[in-house]
Nucleic acid binder design. Structure first.
Lengths: 136, 136
DNA sequence: TATAAACCTTGTAGTAGCTACAAGGTCAAG
DNA sequence: CTTGACCTTGTAGCTACTACAAGGTTTATA
């Protein structure tokens, strides 16, 4: 299976696959006589795992660790759980930040009086102490 | 006022200020005889505006436009309002995405049975069709 | 058999928004 | 007059790709 076929199988781009190989996330496959990469089913599942984890927002480094862990069948899954929880915490933090941001933006927009730039409340609100740039 | 003072005044790093100058976001100030940048109050408020807008998640390009608009006092503030609304829409989209992500992660973590890697539900759930990498 | 289209190869540079150096110049204090 | 804290430029690094250029391979068709 060549790189284009793998790309279609795992819903990725060929360039991304080469990138993953370069950074050591996906093992380099054997080559055909014509120097094409020749992938197996193992590559497909490893790449599919990676893509799914990326969709869920795990970083490349976290995925690298997860893939390493996945190969140690006898170990406890504590470390896996820890990575997932760590990521969840991060997602919750971002949610809180974005929620606050949303409220701020809505308040900003709510102040618009549809007048001229000179009396624009949005620009005023953006200039914290509003010394000059929006009023000078 | 030199770059360090401006940095403290606008809660930024000197390197960031130089970067903003390089990309044309902050106008290049005059220089002292010793070739130090020499900033005025106008620079402080422009930078403060920029930082505030960055904190609210506006892109550098959006800020560039906002700063341009802020100088056209007679124009209507429609364009300003449009940029803010566009950004709010984007923030809402991200909130929805992150919310969905959070639910997925919570469900993932809720499945953990604290056993071995071989029976790890998190890893299983991450491998979409779970062909081999997590089970082979 | 020729040739063109559709693939593949490598390497490099670009994206956003900074941040972190290195190697050197300037300035204020003691 | 030296020490240390500043400043200068230029370049490379960060994340996770994406896009291209210049060339080689394979496959289909005329």
């Amino acid at each position: 299976m060549n790189i284009g076929e793998l790309a279609r199988a795992a819903d990725t781009k060929a360039e991304t696959i080469r990138y993953y190989e370069r950074i050591g996330l996906l093992p380099a496959p054997p080559r055909t006589p014509g120097n094409y990469r020749d992938y197996s089913a193992e590559h497909v599942s490893r790449l599919a795992f990676t893509r799914r984890a990326r969709d869920l927002g795990f970083s490349i480094d976290q995925i690298r660790t997860l893939l390493d862990l996945a190969d140690q069948k006898e170990q406890s899954c504590k470390a896996v759980d820890a990575i997932a929880r760590e990521h969840l915490t991060e997602v919750k933090r971002k949610l809180a930040d974005l929620g606050a941001l949303r409220r701020e933006l809505e308040s900003l927009i709510g102040q618009c009086r549809h007048g001229t730039i000179a009396e624009c409340r949005i620009l005023e609100a953006l200039a914290p102490d509003a010394a000059s740039s929006a009023r000078a």
